[in-house]
Structure formats: structure tokens, C-alpha cells
């Protein structure tokens, strides 16, 4: 029975961790929709949703319930299997990214070293890029299977946007990787905790580029062309209704949460609480402080995402492509060259 010869406790631990992370991302995404509407309201001198429950806190539940009770429409002549596969893929890829994020340090719980990271693979960042590049499929398959020209156009628009900005995103990260010398997110975080400064100090331009590219990757304004409701006839989810539409929208909010966590981990020290020396705290306290720090940073970034959305108007498509190819990629290359030179001269 060699089949059963693996560490069961390990498996159970990871399974629990995965379940917890997924439910946390779902809840965060749910309340991100609420926060989005609140932020939108506040920026426009309104109050945002405040009727469902105290301060409107039950609004996301009401929205979800509404989506569940909507009629499911599958257009005639659409490809039924692919039509359902589209949103499922979107959701699946959104969930998958969280596997390599270190949510906290290692902690001793019940005689076991529990690692708050599902998988510490030595190519962590590349894994994220891989999953992000797969995120295009949900969009494309959904758009094509709808059997609607406008959906297809939007899917093409979205896919080419995602591919274009992935390049700039990767290039902006290479400079950071030159400094850290590792692709593992755990190592990068540890370096920031032990070093004096977070990576944003060494890589301000890289941070900015990465931030802009993640806005584009998450289809957030000002780059939300794949789902421009008013001027571009909505987006790839035009034909979707009910919870399938909900999946697309929800996947986007999960993506936003995860990409904010990734930015926090890469550039803002991950679970490093500023001005606190984690090594002096006891295991569980350090863990809680770390979680607090990581989530604080993430929520701040989510707020900035929303703030940007309700401030900037949408780019035109040619402007978007110009910015991506002629603006961000040369800047990322410049950043790379400068970082390379500095690394070369300082690390004799």
C-alpha cells in the first residue's frame, strides 16, 4: 500500500488552509463589491448602499441572492458547454493564484510547524504569471460561446489587453527579481522583513509599473475596456445572466484581492508589520500581527484600486495600447537596465 504512504496530516493541513483561503477570498470579494459602491458613493458625495442591514452591510448578500434568483438564459445557437465553461474557468483561475502567496510566517500549532502558504515553490512569481495568463481563457471562451459579435469583440479586446500588459508586468518585475535573486514569494518576504526597507523603496518605478499593469490585468478602470457598459456595448459577458454573470463579476473582485495581496507581498513587505520586530513576539502573536499587516496593506491597495476607478475616465483603446507598448514597456526596460547597472556596481 505505497499509495497511502504520504503525510496525511500534511494533506489535511493544506486542505484546511486551502478551504480557509478560498472562503476568505470569497468573503473579501463579496465585501469588495460593497466597498466599491460605498467608495463610489463617498467620492461622488453620496452615501452608497445603506438600506440592507446596518450601514447596508447585508447588501452583498442581497445582490448575491438576486443573482441566484435571476433566470438563466443560454442563448440559442450558442455553444452550451463552452458557455458554461467560460465563467467556471474565470472563477477557477481567480482562485488558483492564491496558492503561492505567503499569508503569514510559519507557526508551531499542536506540535507541528504550520506554514501559512499552500505551496512554497521556487518559481512562485512565474506561477502567478502562468495562472494570470490563463485567466484570458475564461473571457475568450465565454465571449465566443455567447454567439454574439459584441461579446466576441469584447473578448478579443480583453484578451489582447491582458496579453499586452502581461509583458510590461513581467518586465517590471524582472528588475525586482534582480534585487531579490529569488522567485519564491516566501524568500522575497523574508528578505524584506530582515532588510531595512521594503522593496518599494528600491523599486519605486517598478512598483508603479506593476501597479498600473495589475489595474489592466484586473480589467479595472481606467483600463476596463473589456466591460465598458456604456460606450462599447458592455463586454464579453453581455449574454450572461444569473449566477454565471455573477461568477464573472465575482472572479474579477477575487482577482483584485489577490493582485493586491501580490503587490503587498512583493513591494510592501508582505506580512511584515512596520516598526515591530516580529522575532521578539511569540509564535501565535507574531502570526496574528503578520496577518493584520498583510490584510491591512491589501485593503489599503484595494481602496486605492477603487479610488483610481472613481477618479479616472476610461482610456480609449488605441491610447491603452499606446500606453502599454510605447509607454510602460520602454519604462520597464529602462528600469531593468538601471537596476542591472546598480546591482552590477554595488555587488562586486
Amino acid at each position: 500500500m505505497t499509495l497511502l504512504a504520504f503525510d496525511w496530516a500534511f494533506t489535511v493541513e493544506k486542505a484546511i488552509l486551502i478551504a480557509v483561503i478560498i472562503s476568505i477570498s470569497l468573503v473579501v470579494a463579496m465585501y469588495a463589491t460593497y466597498a466599491e459602491r460605498k467608495v463610489a458613493g463617498f467620492i461622488q458625495d453620496r452615501r452608497g448602499p445603506n438600506r440592507a442591514g446596518p450601514f447596508g452591510l447585508l447588501q452583498p448578500l442581497a445582490d448575491g441572492l438576486k443573482l441566484f434568483f435571476k433566470e438563466e438564459v443560454i442563448p440559442t445557437h450558442s455553444n452550451k458547454f463552452l458557455f458554461i465553461l467560460g465563467p467556471s474557468l474565470a472563477m477557477f483561475t481567480a482562485m488558483m493564484t492564491s496558492a503561492v502567496i505567503p499569508w503569514g510566517g510559519k507557526v508551531e500549532l499542536g506540535g507541528r510547524m504550520v506554514d501559512l502558504q499552500v505551496a512554497d515553490i521556487n518559481i512562485g512569481i512565474l506561477y502567478i504569471f502562468g495562472v494570470v495568463s490563463l485567466g484570458v481563457y475564461g473571457m475568450m471562451i465565454g465571449g465566443w460561446a455567447s454567439n454574439n459579435k459584441f461579446s466576441l469583440m469584447a473578448a478579443l479586446r480583453g484578451a489582447s489587453q491582458a496579453i499586452s500588459y502581461e509583458l510590461a508586468m513581467g518586465l517590471s518585475l524582472i528588475a525586482l527579481l534582480m534585487l531579490t535573486g529569488s522567485l519564491s514569494l516566501r524568500t522575497i518576504t523574508d528578505q524584506q522583513i530582515q532588510g531595512n526597507w521594503w522593496n518599494i523603496v528600491y523599486q519605486p518605478l517598478g512598483f508603479l509599473l506593476f501597479f498600473i499593469c495589475s489595474l489592466a490585468e484586473c480589467n479595472r478602470a481606467p483600463f476596463d475596456l473589456p466591460e465598458a457598459e456604456s460606450e462599447l456595448n458592455m463586454g464579453y459577458h453581455q449574454e450572461y445572466s444569473s449566477m454565471k454573470l455573477g461568477f464573472f463579476l465575482f472572479a474579477e473582485y477575487i482577482n483584485m484581492f489577490i493582485s493586491c495581496t501580490v503587490i503587498a507581498t512583493l513591494f510592501l513587505g508582505g506580512y511584515d508589520m512596520p516598526f515591530v520586530d516580529e522575532s521578539q513576539l511569540s509564535g501565535v502573536t507574531a502570526l496574528l500581527v503578520g496577518l493584520l499587516a498583510l490584510f491591512g496593506k491589501t485593503f489599503l491597495l484595494i481602496f486605492i484600486f477603487m479610488w483610481v476607478r472613481w477618479t479616472l475616465p476610461r482610456f480609449r483603446y488605441d491610447q491603452l495600447m499606446n500606453l502599454g507598448w510605447k509607454g510602460l514597456i520602454p519604462l520597464a526596460l529602462l528600469n531593468m537596465v538601471i537596476t542591472g547597472a546598480v546591482v552590477l556596481f554595488t555587488m562586486k
Binding site: 518559481i123 512565474l126 490563463l134 484578451a159
Partner: peptide, 24 residues
């Protein structure tokens, strides 16, 4: 692992998307 993920990024993530573009 590196080859595995690069295979996914380059082939599944980029080239196949272009294939899909054309076919669609």
C-alpha cells in the same frame, strides 16, 4: 518546475490565445 510553468505561460497562455483569436 521552471520548464513546466514556462510551458504554461508561453504555450497555453500566449500562443494558444493567438490560435483561439484566429479560429474564433
Amino acid at each position: 518546475q521552471f520548464l513546466a510553468i514556462v510551458n504554461i505561460i508561453v504555450y497555453a497562455g500566449a500562443i494558444m490565445v493567438l490560435f483561439l483569436f484566429v479560429v474564433m
